[in-house]
């Protein structure tokens, strides 16, 4: 098992650091180019959602991204310390409804095998995203 952790401010100009991280790690895990792109956008969208919705655009908060490469899966945990999010309110939008916004959750769910919203930490939330390695499930 290998663990990589990135701690960064909730400032959109640092999102590229997360993208570079997930892109490189998914390549190491042996995912196809298409899967690497989908994983990159999923993790980027998840972090952007924290900035927009959990921290309401406050750029001085903290996001921790932890990548864990296990025998059969890549697990990505995004930890925030903002207001509690009710998982019931997080839904992908109907794609037939053409309008700006609301695509992030759909992109996250399309890329990942499992997505769990955990608001059990005393402060903040954590989003656990899992993608099984090629041939891992």
């Amino acid at each position: 098992m290998k663990e990589i952790e990135i701690k960064l401010p909730s400032d959109p100009r640092y999102l590229k650091i997360i993208r570079n991280g997930i892109s490189h790690i998914s390549e190491i895990c042996g995912f196809s180019d298409e899967e690497c792109n989908a994983l990159t956008i999923a993790v980027d969208e998840a972090a952007a959602n924290i900035i927009k919705h959990t921290y309401n655009g406050d750029e001085n908060q903290t996001i921790i991204v932890r990548f864990t490469i296990k025998d059969d899966r890549l697990e990505i945990i995004l930890r925030d310390f903002g207001k509690k999010i009710d998982p019931k309110n997080i839904k992908p939008r109907n794609l037939d409804d053409i309008r700006p916004g609301g695509l992030g959750v759909h992109l996250i769910k399309s890329a990942m095998d499992e997505v769990t919203y955990d608001n059990s930490p005393e402060v903040g939330n954590q989003l656990i995203m899992t993608k099984y390695l090629p041939g891992g499930k």
């Binding site: 180019d33 956008i41 969208e45 053409i98 309008r99 700006p100 916004g101 695509l103």
Partner: peptide
């Protein structure tokens, strides 16, 4: 990302309001 896509959707909708045209070209795979 989806905010970029949303920006293009918004522009497409604005263009539609005055019967203009918006097209995209040269999309890379990603």
């Amino acid at each position: 990302d989806s905010s970029g896509v949303a920006t293009l959707v918004e522009a497409l909708q604005q263009v539609g309001k005055y019967s203009g045209n918006l097209k995209l070209a040269n999309l890379r795979d990603a």
